[in-house]
Nucleic acid binder design. Structure first.
Lengths: 201, 201
DNA sequence: CCCGGCTTATGACAGCGGTCATAGTAGCCA
DNA sequence: TGGCTACTATGACCGCTGTCATAAGCCGGG
């Protein structure tokens, strides 16, 4: 995460996402974000005239595009692309982090949803867009693997749902058990849904 | 939710859970809880000398036992108990609420996890206990339905993970789509795992 | 009557939140 | 040099938070 050589604006968005996924939106202060980003406090109102709401929304946006981009990288790294392999790679990103750096943070989109879904509609919308941007490449990848078109989006939704829920449980338990469990149990179902008889040329 | 005729203490715990699942832990103030419960503010420090931390932990506890108890009720209502039927009933509780009362609140345990998992260890532990208390009866029910003993807990974890994640997505989208999707996609897998010693046929 | 308890009632306090206002600096262009 | 724009720097404001201190009400028992 060498975010040191980016503009101060982008660094603040990145730091906001980091702090939000640790402590939640409400507990994350604007001053904290500036300090964490090594950015001057005065830049906050300059780059984010919309205040905290704008900063949070951009952090959620950033997280969504980041997650979506990761999907492409996972696919490129898979020796042979299978639904269970993709899902395992998505989950492994989290188990790796938890086992190497501790269970400090969760998903920033989930945090924004919990804290702002009812009060701040723009953030709720941003979170929905982030989930959609994340589901899209997963569903497309499933289609390429031979999953019927009418189930790709459903299975992608299921994968991300299971991942998000397992993240919550893993953080409470400080144990990756829930994450490895959903991979083990869901993998066969995902692969079974990919019928190789219908590969679109 | 006729919680009017319970002691003020229990009413405050109940109200805390209600407000937490709407706005998150940090955004929920002690004074708000007292007002929502129709309880005097002075009772807060009397019944909860441990402060907000104690109140939140008890709210999480309450949510866990409530969820666990619901499982038993779902089972009693099912005409013939199947894993997919149980899962559908668990999810339907949420779709019913969302369609009748709006997408105001999520799961209080999830909210406590997002907001306190890193900062307040006692709350993190309480959330883990709540999940465990919820998973237990689900796993036991799966065992009764013929699921092999070494998979009951795994499948229960998967069910609750998928539910929690779908809850997040549903709240952001203000649409029960994610909830109905996980039921539709996960149901067959769950039923297929229940082999009551009788092979296919 | 007064006396103990359990509860309720307020008021104050110290701290932090986001936001605004205002002033300062740096660098480029003419 | 002057002036313009982009960015930085502070300090103050008001509202709200959790918590404490203190005192009042209520009510059954002596």
């Amino acid at each position: 995460m060498a975010a040191s050589e980016r503009g101060p604006r982008e660094r603040m968005v990145f730091s906001a996402a980091q702090l939000i996924r640790r402590d939640g939106v409400t507990a994350t202060g604007m001053r904290d974000v500036a300090v964490h980003a090594g950015a001057p406090r005065g830049s906050l109102q300059h780059y984010f005239p919309g205040g905290k709401e704008q900063l949070v929304n951009e952090a959620v946006d950033w997280a969504g595009t980041y997650a979506a981009r990761r999907v492409g990288r996972f696919l490129a790294q898979l020796p042979e692309p299978t639904p269970s392999g993709l899902f395992a790679a998505m989950v492994r990103q989290w188990t790796d982090e938890y086992e190497s750096s501790g269970f400090a943070g969760g998903c920033p989109v989930a945090a924004a949803t919990v804290d702002c879904a009812q009060t701040t509609d723009s953030t709720r919308t941003a979170a929905a867009a982030a989930f959609a941007r994340w589901i899209r490449p997963v569903a497309d990848a499933l289609a390429d693997m031979g999953v019927p078109a009418d189930r790709t989006e459903s299975l992608a939704t299921l994968m991300i749902s299971a991942l998000e829920g397992a993240l919550l449980i893993a953080r409470t338990e400080r144990d990756v058990r829930a994450l490895t469990t959903v991979v083990r149990e869901l993998g066969p179902l995902l692969d079974a849904s990919a019928v190789p008889a219908a590969p679109r040329g």
